[in-house]
Design a protein around this nucleic acid. Structure first.
Lengths: 136, 136
DNA sequence: AATCTTCTTTAGAATAATTATAAACAACGA
DNA sequence: TCGTTGTTTATAATTATTCTAAAGAAGATT
């Protein structure tokens, strides 16, 4: 359980002023035990449901992008009509249940080490992500 | 170099009638030595440039989706505003140069074998894709 | 070849996710 | 408290993709 104080710190670290709206967003994002996979639309709806207060869609977009930039959220590469984010920002991979359109975390130890034996001059590796698509 | 006859076969295999437009699309997609990574918009513009004939955007979408469904094209999971496809439908992975927004093929042997040591009851693995993001 | 049926193409409209705008408002520091 | 700067919001704009319905082309049948 995170406290409001922690959210305020997180926001300040992200150079964001701790406003009522942003704290509500944090409440939904970070006040949980398990990792949370979501689309902006999921989040937008959950804020209304969980806090009883509405935050404008534009603010949800802005805040999520700011957190993403600061590394408090991870963007998951999937081809979907919506962009998925993850509150688990550690190095890890995903299952994607194509039918249910649901993401499931894969712990790093669930996937053997991945060795990339090719390099591109002048470029370095920023991230290595595995997406395992699931079907019935 | 593929011939028009091969395109016609490909189309028939996909339950598509070989029309002038679709053959032009094939010309741009499959008449090449190297693998081709593209967005619908790339393809749309290339058709005009390479064949001198315009094909409507709707037809490009329809045909690409039909080929994708039949396995003649692969969709690459990336978070981008546009969907990327690949003419290389063999099992392989990708570099994505974030700055240039460009894809580069990774041969399967460039990436060690990937072992997934977790399973979800009732689901089976459809695909395993590695995306390596590159930065400067 | 003429005809009929079915599939295809097309322009344009509709949809949906995301981003931009600019005015009202809130947080912060002096 | 006041002034500055950052923030929220509704709404408009943008962009990728899908839908629609009418005109046209392909394939089968005679």
């Amino acid at each position: 359980m995170n406290s409001k104080q922690e959210f305020i710190e997180k926001l300040r670290n992200s150079s964001l002023r701790p406003t009522k709206q942003r704290i509500n967003i944090c409440e939904v994002l970070f006040n949980r035990d398990k990792t949370f996979h979501f689309t902006i639309n999921d989040l937008f709806n959950l804020i209304k449901d969980k806090t009883g207060e509405k935050v404008s869609l534009a603010t949800v977009y802005n805040t999520v992008h700011a957190f993403h930039k600061k590394g408090y959220l991870k963007e998951i590469p999937i081809n979907s009509n919506q962009t998925y984010f993850d509150t688990n920002v550690t190095d890890h991979h995903h299952f994607f249940d194509v039918k249910e359109e649901k993401l499931i975390d894969l712990k790093n130890e669930d996937v053997g080490p991945i060795e990339i034996q090719k390099s591109i001059p002048g470029k370095k590796i920023k991230s290595v992500e595995v997406l395992v698509k699931l079907e019935d």
